[in-house]
Design a binder for these strands. Structure first.
Length: 247
DNA sequence: AAGTGATGCAACCGCACCCGT
DNA sequence: TACGGGTGCGGTTGCATCACT
């Protein structure tokens, strides 16, 4: 299904992720946030490039990411939004909570594209959002996306790079930074309450100068730091993780 | 049972944008 | 203003699995 793991010329691991790598990345990002994707793998003890780590986190490990079959409602929404904005997968993903742009893109190419085509052929409608006429779709998107998706919001406050609102975000390096657009209502309550207590327990942890440690332990994750009473907080961390949708 | 083409999807690649200096 | 580093997005690829012959 996926690329077999291998090492490239520079010694970086490529291909499928192992459960151990997933656990390292998850533990690291939940603890430190993604302060710099390029440098992160080194400090997390991963032989991966930053891009690979980011992709893995965004598409698979990130809290709230849904996997599995799509409902009819989701199908309809994707097709509707694709008709509106074209191949703006990140925009569609932002609206379809819990799904990632990559997953939606794959799903479109493998399933919905055919369905949409059939529908268009059947209805005789003008082909607006064809995968082969991206320029049309882009033009359409540029003129309509802000109004269609977020009528009252400047686009730069909407997309994935957006910071969380004050209600759900208090730390500079929150582990859920940049995920606001994908957060479900359940996630939001989780973010607001669980993370607040989690972060409060850490004090100024997210704004403290970063101290590297790659001492990852299979059982407990990253080993304690002086600014972080790990024994006290790991339980809370797991509690928080247990509250995640799907756990 | 074996061969082969189709399918699904995780991961990679390249480019564009943003932001700090 | 120009430049460089970091990040995000959309398109593409690789390969395991499925379906069919």
């Amino acid at each position: 299904m996926v690329r077999a793991p291998f090492f490239d010329k520079s010694g970086l691991k490529r291909g499928a992720w192992s459960p151990e790598e997933d656990e390292k990345l998850r533990a690291y990002v939940l603890r430190y946030g993604h302060w710099n994707w390029r440098k992160l793998p080194k400090f997390a003890g991963l032989s991966r490039c930053g891009k690979s780590c980011r992709l893995r986190w965004m598409n698979y490990l990130r809290p709230g990411v849904k996997h599995g079959s799509y409902s009819q409602q989701e199908d309809d929404l994707i097709m509707k939004w694709h008709q509106d904005v074209g191949n703006k997968w990140s925009l569609i993903a932002a609206k379809l909570q819990g799904r990632t742009d990559n997953e939606i893109k794959n799903y479109w190419h493998s399933h919905l594209k055919k369905i949409a085509k059939n529908k268009q052929n059947a209805s005789g409608l003008k082909k607006v959002a064809s995968e082969t006429s991206q320029s049309d779709a882009r033009e359409n998107a540029e003129t309509h996306e802000a109004q269609v998706f977020f009528p009252n919001s400047p686009s730069h406050l909407i997309l994935e790079s957006s910071p969380l609102s004050p209600e759900t975000y208090s730390g500079k390096f929150s582990p859920i930074t940049s995920d606001s657009a994908h957060v479900t209502p359940q996630d939001q309550s989780w973010s607001a309450e669980s993370f607040r207590s989690f972060e409060e327990s850490l004090g100024d942890f997210w704004t403290e100068p970063f101290v590297a440690d790659s001492t990852y332990n299979q059982d407990v994750g990253f080993m304690p730091l002086s600014v972080f009473d790990y024994d006290d907080n790991v339980e809370l961390l797991y509690q928080v993780m247990q509250e995640l949708p799907g756990n």
